[in-house]
Design a protein around this nucleic acid. Sequence first.
DNA 1: CGAGTTTATTAAACCGGTTTAATAACATTC
DNA 2: GAATGTTATTAAACCGGTTTAATAAACTCG
Lengths: 348, 348
Amino acid sequence: MAKIDDVARLAKVSKGTVSNVFSQKRPTSNEVRERVMSVSRQLNYVPNHTARSLVTKKTMAIGLTIPHGSFFFSAFHTQFINGVILEAASYGYRVLLDIIPVHEVKTPFLTSYPIDGAVVMRPTANDERITLMHMGQIPFVTVGHVMNENIEHSTSVDNDNAQMMSNICAYLVGKGHRDIMFLNANEHMTVSIDRRASFVEAMKEHGLDVEEHMIHHKPELNSSEYMDYGYEETMDILGKQQKKVTAIIADDDRTAFSVLNAVKDLNLSVPGDVSIFVICGDNSMMVQSNPSLTSMDLQPSELGAQSVRLLMHQLGVLQGEYEENIIVEGKIIERNSVSTIGSDEDRE
Amino acid sequence: MAKIDDVARLAKVSKGTVSNVFSQKRPTSNEVRERVMSVSRQLNYVPNHTARSLVTKKTMAIGLTIPHGSFFFSAFHTQFINGVILEAASYGYRVLLDIIPVHEVKTPFLTSYPIDGAVVMRPTANDERITLMHMGQIPFVTVGHVMNENIEHSTSVDNDNAQMMSNICAYLVGKGHRDIMFLNANEHMTVSIDRRASFVEAMKEHGLDVEEHMIHHKPELNSSEYMDYGYEETMDILGKQQKKVTAIIADDDRTAFSVLNAVKDLNLSVPGDVSIFVICGDNSMMVQSNPSLTSMDLQPSELGAQSVRLLMHQLGVLQGEYEENIIVEGKIIERNSVSTIGSDEDRE
DNA sequence: CGAGTTTATTAAACCGGTTTAATAACATTC
DNA sequence: GAATGTTATTAAACCGGTTTAATAAACTCG
């Protein structure tokens, strides 16, 4: 590979000038610029990324830390990542996927993080990734709020879980549902904690009490119950226990599909006997489902883009004032899995 | 941030020694090592990644280039990426997601690629990403074979598409199906080209001719027909044109769901009237589907891991001989979407 | 037209590590 | 106990760029 000195020599200029031609940090004359570029083309020269980084102290990469433990992508992750990559690229930044629990890096590999900042997805309570970023002086943006002690000032992007749950409940109650079962995400996730509380509160505002058996949490990824989440709960509560449930809020599309199966096995129908509302799923799947599933669109891609924009502000790439905590709207997308009940009395 | 000189001074050793303590490239005495580590802990010192990279000429990162154009993840991608990340991490490598068509990088951002090698997913014919890797001297492994002129010697990981199609056809024909429609992937993808040819050939071996209307290709991602792929084709061929089709091979789970809907709208049933076989999809979705979908497991995660292992061999991280082109088996997973037909005659 | 200002260029220092070649300290061997 | 081999340590060169401070050349303007 040709280096800057080779170009400088052949173009009869100093390496500082060659540097300026490429970095465009100081002006260069047309004459010189063309000579340098011409020589560079001949030699196939391109500035060395690492050398540049060493002195500028910028790696032009941001980390994207996905929740570790058992690593897994859902539709939400997928679209979120999509948003992050595209937005980052528009600022010349690359995205480094990051799942290694840092304390496990063995000595000969141990180095500083080659990133300028990070987007941390779905932090858990006292998330160590966040503690590490904080210690390592790496600017970061979280998706979902931080729940670490000793860290107060943090920028984040999130859906308004309280507002969303409130909207969902209002939507369902407005359609006559009073017995709503909530199949929540895993209980360790901060979103899950928020949503649970908001759900109970929203129901209370409609004068409805939520009994314990109406809220469930997704089992751990590697547990044996994981794959049947939604099915088992539905069979148990609606079948065996014969509790009254007219609507089910499912955390994601897969859970909803499980519920769909259980409902079918109970010889009930959706949305005739039971309505289903999905919080987060793959739109194309939910459209193709039968019946198609009414859902909340969390706009994960928009969340991703916004998180990068926030990070760029922190890195000084974007100038000006900015909100430290951005809320992205969740939008209800009506499809065919929720019916209106009790309308008989209303209309007749 | 503390630097190596600070540590060297306080530990009363030369920076070269400190370097050796961390990189473990040369032996150091216990006494010295402990002194250095102790000082490092005090100062919170960690070697600077960029500085190390500059001289070792290793970034300890590999690129993962996802097919560009409109960037989108399917279940295959998701699991594949999963495999790549986990395997790479075990060698101390990080993964840089890469989707920027390189020729679009604007001047002030133009630098060499900060990666040691790359995994290129699903190359298209004459893929420019590959040409660039080749020119830039960056070792790479492809998933699916290369179809670039002037590049002959390439390492790759792949499923045996011919064998797979042959197995699928044998499976379906064995169950009495003779009229099989194939909803293939997008026609620009090399897998799609391979599979089409293999499908026709496999059918021929069973003495069956494939008519033109029995093979379709997924529309472009941003086209209006994209979302309805599977539905439209089924409605048209089985409905409007009233062609005889007893089994449909769908490229992915979503396409299969579309087909499922069309079949329902035609007042037919799966697998009673029409059988469905999925080539690649999210297992948890296919299990939850009703009926659950029989599919070919491409083992994307295994493909990802193998591709990294190949790359590590090329980078000299792994020693010893190795296959340049690895084939990962596709396994048929029987569920409930394929029925045996014509068995009446056989048995009676 | 000469003092003052602006603009493009450059030589040298610098970023923070690794690596080479030299050396000092300690073990072996005969 | 001198000659040889081994091991840990170090000073200095080096990786390939950017940046600073100095300078030369080209403009302003009274």
